[in-house]
Design a protein around this nucleic acid. Structure first.
Length: 268
DNA sequence: AAGAATGTTATGTA
DNA sequence: CTACATAACATTCT
């Protein structure tokens, strides 16, 4: 099973490696070669993350847009690294370490106008300081789609993926098929705060961990695989043992516990 | 070795 | 404008 990964995790890892990082080569493929040529030898000054979009700021105001998509991966080698395989798009040289990028849906230069357009389409990212939850709330109120679909919609809220949407709804005790517009204000506030807390934990621990802190004993790395989550891709609910349900929503498999996330009672 | 997987955008239709 | 389906794109693992 592939190791759990999120954009935020890699954003953090990359930031740590920033000390003296430069771009060193292009891949044999020409997909990213334009970027590689333009950026060759330049230092990274900063990495900005908006949802799952990463913006690498290089010297001379050059920006590299990276989106890992479903298959994208950074692989870190201790130098000297083996020759890059032919799926490697870009290789970063961080001194002791060498970081290879493969599989990303985006890894190219981006100009300020294009970047602005891209960011304008994103809902607030709960990890960014100053993110405005009201924008997402306003969007929710207009949508009839299930809340389970809305949480994946980057126009509504940016940065939640398929694992987190399941785990957030579990933590909030919400039935995933509830129409977004029926979510109550207090429930929304809980969703937002839960999301922030979960993503921050993910950033800190470098993996997705959604079980209560009391259960991970402050050492989430000791939990393995499916034991780091409550419902996602589990047979049984980690809290109550009920058989976990699965349904395709937004073209992804959504998992939930019918006991911990009951259907909302109709009001009399 | 087909199929699934932690993602997103574009496009057409209603 | 919202919604829904489909295709496209990227790669690795079992």
């Amino acid at each position: 099973m592939p190791e759990g990964h999120t954009i935020h995790r890699y954003a953090r890892l990359q930031t740590q490696a920033l000390g003296d990082t430069s771009l060193r080569m292009s891949s044999p493929q020409d997909r990213a070669s334009e970027a590689a040529e333009a950026l060759d030898g330049r230092r990274i000054e900063r990495i900005d993350a908006y949802g799952k979009h990463l913006l690498y700021r290089f010297e001379d105001e050059l920006s590299l847009h990276v989106h890992l998509g479903l298959f994208g991966r950074f692989r870190t080698w201790r130098a000297p690294a083996p020759p890059p395989r032919d799926t490697i798009r870009l290789r970063f040289d961080a001194g002791e370490r060498v970081i290879d990028l493969s599989g990303a849906t985006a890894s190219h230069l981006i100009d300020p106008a294009t970047e602005a357009k891209m960011l304008a389409r994103l809902g607030p990212d709960p990890l960014r300081p100053g993110a405005d939850p009201e924008r997402a709330w306003e969007a929710l109120r207009r949508r009839r789609i299930p809340i389970g679909a809305a949480l994946l919609d980057q126009n509504v809220i940016a940065g939640i993926g398929n694992v987190y949407r399941a785990e957030i709804l579990f933590a909030c005790g919400l039935d995933p098929i509830l129409p977004a517009k029926t979510i109550k204000r207090a429930e929304w506030e809980e969703i937002w705060e839960t999301t922030r807390a979960m993503l921050r934990t993910g950033e800190r621990s470098g993996r997705i961990v959604t079980v209560p802190a009391s259960e991970s004993k402050g050492a989430p790395s000791k939990l393995r695989g499916r034991d780091r989550v409550q419902v996602y891709r589990r047979e049984q609910c980690r809290r109550c043992g009920t058989k976990v349900r699965m349904k395709e929503i937004s073209a992804r498999n959504l998992f939930w516990c019918p006991t911990c996330q009951p259907r909302r009672r109709r009001l009399a």
